[in-house]
Write a protein that binds this DNA or RNA. Structure first.
Length: 475
RNA sequence: UGAGGUGUAGCGCAGUUUGGUAGCGCGCUUGGUUAGGGACCAAGAGGUCGUGGGUUCAAGUCCCGUCACCUCAACCA
């Protein structure tokens, strides 16, 4: 094996995780860096993952009656300042357009960091009667947040996401959808990304600027750090009052609507990489993998090999499998490594020996196991294998996460826990000062409030605990 | 913003201490032999050494300035 192989180049996954992550992202050609700091150019292989995420997500939104729409990129500064907490939270990271058409603008324009304000302003015009409700819309868009430090997919100045925005007539309905969408996200993460998550309410400190309550799903990365992978926000009447979203109810009274929003971003791609990746590179969950199976011909110049590979490819494609035949001039060994690095779930080796036996060799990326497979009925076998891989990846990640959620009764235990790459459950009195103290002492933040309250005292002050919190270091 | 580090071929780097013809590996091009875990042989192409100034017969190397990027901290999806 060449000394310069990618496998040997990348850092050890346990000891130098951030470097490993960056190497994998760049070397697998998911992204390139943009000319502006903190921006990334998503290349076709990376974008294909996003397209698959979009397809799966759209199907789920549709099932909830949520339709896609599009709102403008530029938001008048005056919109942003209408909701006090919102502007305070986002002001430090908003990019502002001050000139256009060669002249200074009378009013500066924000490049959207999120679209509650501009969508709220439109909803205000569209909604008049209770008959107009609920309004359920989603937009796929780019947003910009001027972050100080960035990492591809996990935190970039510009990123792609979906943001759903709904208005309901009642608090109950609005809160119900807020929780429902959190559930949809969890199900999506489990079945499409093979990624286990913890879901729950966020603390006041961690909630969305302008929200009444924020709920999130947190995923555990390979190094034990937490990644916020999706959020839903119950906004109450905060934005409806700021943007005058009112409707005439059945009883003839003019009432403010209740709004909520929810979003996931290209960060999910980072989550996939950091949840499943290993020393060889990516391990793609089959449902969103750009390529689900790759055929590597052995001794491609021998008579009949390439023809058999092409025939197999056509049959698999016809069966709905995203399949690629690697006809490049590289050696088979090179191809094995290349496609493993890109995380393709199933590799199919087909050479003269197999052809004679009417078989091919299947190598699965998650366990690296190889099995023989009859060429007749290969499509069915591979479909089943893909489902098996997805389930196995989920179970493996779930077992790892669960084995690394520990309890702590003291700050020292909490510190030891997060330093060991764990999520730490602990009691909390509910006050901000104690939450800040945990951050200062252990560089860990409250990820989610855990429904199960088995603790009786606050880990910091020792008073009676109101909540059980999952603390972790986070990306 | 605080601390540290790096800018030399597409990528990764050596060369800087002690100034003297611009180097290595990978990748790329061409031809050939190969092929079940990153093949081999041969011949090639590719550089204003981040940038501005200074010292010198001579600067990638020494001096002064400047810009960019990276890591850690702080801040955040």
């Amino acid at each position: 094996m060449a000394k310069d192989s990618f496998v040997e180049q990348i850092a050890d996954i346990d000891t130098d995780f951030p470097q490993w992550y960056t190497d994998v992202v760049v070397k697998t050609k998911l992204v390139d860096y943009g000319p502006v700091k903190g921006t990334m150019v998503i290349r076709p292989y990376g974008y294909a993952i996003w397209e698959n995420i979009q397809r799966e997500m759209d199907a789920r939104f549709k099932a909830e009656g949520i339709e896609n729409a599009y709102f403008p990129l530029l938001i008048p500064m005056s919109f942003m300042t209408k909701e006090a907490e919102h502007v305070e939270g986002f002001a430090p990271e908003v990019a502002v357009v001050t000139h256009a058409g060669g002249e200074k603008l009378a009013e500066p324009l924000c490049i959207r960091p999120t679209s509650e304000t501009i969508i709220g302003s439109m909803y205000s015009k569209w909604i008049q009667s209770y008959r107009d409700l609920p309004v359920l819309m989603n937009q796929w868009a780019n947003v910009m947040r001027w972050e100080k430090t960035t990492r591809p997919f996990l935190r970039t100045s510009e990123f792609l996401w979906q943001e759903g925005h709904a208005v309901h007539a009642s608090e109950e309905e609005s809160m119900a959808l807020t929780l429902k969408m959190l559930h949809v996200y969890e199900e999506f993460a489990r079945t499409c990304l093979a990624m286990p998550v913890l879901t729950g309410r966020k603390t006041e400190k961690e909630k969305f600027a302008g929200a009444v309550a924020t709920f999130g799903m947190e995923a555990m990365m390979h190094d034990g750090k937490s990644l916020q992978a999706g959020t839903t926000h119950y906004l109450g009447q905060n934005f409806s009052k700021a943007f005058d979203i009112r409707f005439l109810d059945k009883d003839g009274a003019l009432k403010y609507g209740y709004t909520m929003s929810f979003g996931v971003s290209t960060r999910l791609i980072g989550a996939i990489i950091m949840t499943h990746g290993d020393k060889r590179g990516l391990v793609m969950p089959p449902v969103v993998a750009p390529v689900q199976a790759v055929i590597v011909p052995i001794a491609a110049k021998k008579e009949g090999v390439l023809e058999a590979c092409r025939a197999l490819r056509d049959r698999l494609a016809a069966a709905g499998i995203r399949v690629t035949l690697d006809e490049s001039e590289n050696s088979p060994g090179w191809k094995f490594n290349e496609w493993e690095m890109k995380g393709v779930p199933v590799r199919i080796e087909l050479g003269p020996r197999d052809l004679e036996a009417g078989k091919c060799l299947l190598a699965r990326r998650d366990t690296l196991e190889k099995t023989e497979c009859a060429l007749d009925g290969a499509a069915q076998t591979i479909r089943e294998l893909l489902a098996q891989i997805s389930a196995n990846m989920y179970e493996r990640a779930k077992a790892r996460m669960e084995s690394r959620i520990v309890r702590a009764n003291t700050l020292d235990e909490l510190l030891a826990g997060v330093e060991g790459g764990n999520f730490v459950r602990a009691g909390w009195c509910g006050c901000r000062a104690c939450e800040d103290k945990v951050k200062e002492f252990a560089q860990a933040t409250a990820r989610v409030l855990d429904g199960e309250n088995t603790s009786d005292t606050c880990i910091v002050c020792g008073k009676k605990a109101e909540q059980t919190v999952v603390f972790a270091r986070a990306y």
